[in-house]
Computed example of a mutant assay.
Amino acid sequence: MSKIYSGLSILGCAFGSSLMLCLPALADQCSYIKKEQAIATISRLDINQTIYKLCEPCGEKDPQSVKIQHLSMEKVDYQDYWQVGVNGEGIDLAYVFVDSGVEDNLVNLAAIANCPAQSVSPVLSKELIPSGNQEGDTPN
């Protein structure tokens, strides 16, 4: 009987370890991207534009609006990857949405940049944005 429990605990540890290894992979899905993807993203963003951050795999439900005051595209110290920066902070395209210009929807930046992202919506309705978190309401 103790061999069964031992086997189950080993299996549980293996499953738990693999789960822990998978979660960080989802945390930074489209943070480091190809130069072409960074260019596609930067070309879609503007100073004073509002973006909406939402980490769906993290369990977040309410997008947080952020007004772009500074926009950058920088090469990172890992292989030949780049990162888009908003207000001095690198962003993960998988968790950022922008106004699509169509029917009050927000489109995911990863979809715009053709970066494959898991467990995120390609499009969100602006109706998900809490009334106190509308464009212009976000502190710097």
Rank of each mutant, 00 (worst) to 15 (best):
M1T: 15
K3G: 05
I4H: 10
I4E: 06
Y5L: 15
G7Y: 11
S9D: 04
S9Y: 01
L11S: 10
G12I: 10
A14W: 12
F15A: 14
F15H: 03
G16A: 12
S17Q: 08
S17H: 09
S17F: 15
S17W: 13
S18I: 12
L19N: 11
L21Y: 14
L21I: 14
C22Y: 15
P24V: 15
D28L: 11
Q29K: 02
C30Q: 02
I33L: 04
K34T: 06
K34E: 06
K34Y: 03
K35H: 15
K35W: 07
Q37K: 04
A38S: 14
A38F: 02
I39G: 02
I39E: 14
A40D: 15
A40C: 09
L45T: 03
D46F: 12
I47E: 06
I47M: 06
N48I: 08
Q49C: 00
I51E: 00
Y52H: 10
L54F: 09
L54M: 13
C55E: 02
P57F: 03
C58T: 09
C58W: 00
G59L: 04
E60G: 05
D62R: 06
P63F: 03
P63W: 00
Q64W: 08
Q64Y: 08
V66G: 00
V66K: 05
K67V: 12
Q69I: 06
H70P: 00
L71A: 00
L71E: 02
M73G: 15
M73N: 07
Q79V: 08
Q79C: 09
D80A: 12
D80Y: 13
Q83H: 13
Q83D: 14
G85E: 08
G85F: 15
V86G: 02
N87F: 03
N87M: 04
E89C: 01
G90N: 10
I91Q: 04
I91T: 06
L93E: 01
F97K: 04
F97D: 07
F97N: 09
V98E: 08
V98L: 08
V98N: 05
D99E: 08
D99I: 01
D99S: 02
S100Q: 10
S100G: 12
G101I: 08
V102D: 13
E103N: 15
D104E: 10
L106R: 03
V107F: 13
V107E: 15
N108D: 11
N108F: 11
N108V: 07
N108Q: 14
N108K: 11
L109Q: 02
L109T: 05
I112R: 01
P116T: 13
P116G: 09
Q118D: 13
Q118H: 13
S119A: 14
V120S: 01
S121N: 15
P122W: 11
P122C: 09
L124P: 03
S125V: 07
K126G: 06
L128E: 07
I129E: 00
I129K: 01
I129T: 01
P130S: 11
P130V: 07
S131T: 10
S131D: 06
G132N: 09
Q134S: 08
E135M: 11
G136N: 10
G136A: 04
G136I: 06
G136Y: 12
D137S: 12
T138F: 14
N140P: 00
